[in-house]
């Protein structure tokens, strides 16, 4: 990739767009996963749902 030719800015821009969109998607998915894990752990720590059927969502 020594030379990107005359259209380097377009190539870099498109890869930057990919990075931004995918980065945003990955970040939002991971953050949501972490938030839900915490919320569930907190509830279980408080003893909520000890009697409820854990197998059901």
């Amino acid at each position: 990739m020594s030379e990107l030719g005359p259209h380097a800015s377009f190539i870099l821009a498109s890869y930057a767009a990919v990075a931004v969109v995918l980065g945003g998607l990955i970040a939002s998915v991971l953050l949501d996963h972490r938030a839900q894990t915490r919320a569930l752990a907190e509830l279980e720590q408080r003893g909520v749902g000890r009697r409820s059927d854990r197998g059901r969502s």
């Binding site: 998915v29 991971l30 949501d32 996963h33 938030a35 839900q36 894990t37 919320a39 569930l40 509830l43 909520v48 749902g49 409820s52 854990r54 059901r56 969502s57």
Partner: peptide, 16 residues
């Protein structure tokens, strides 16, 4: 990963 998060979200909702 987001399916796991969604399942946990529903569990949290039910428990709450």
């Amino acid at each position: 990963v987001s399916m796991r998060a969604e399942i946990m979200r529903r569990r949290v909702r039910t428990l709450t």
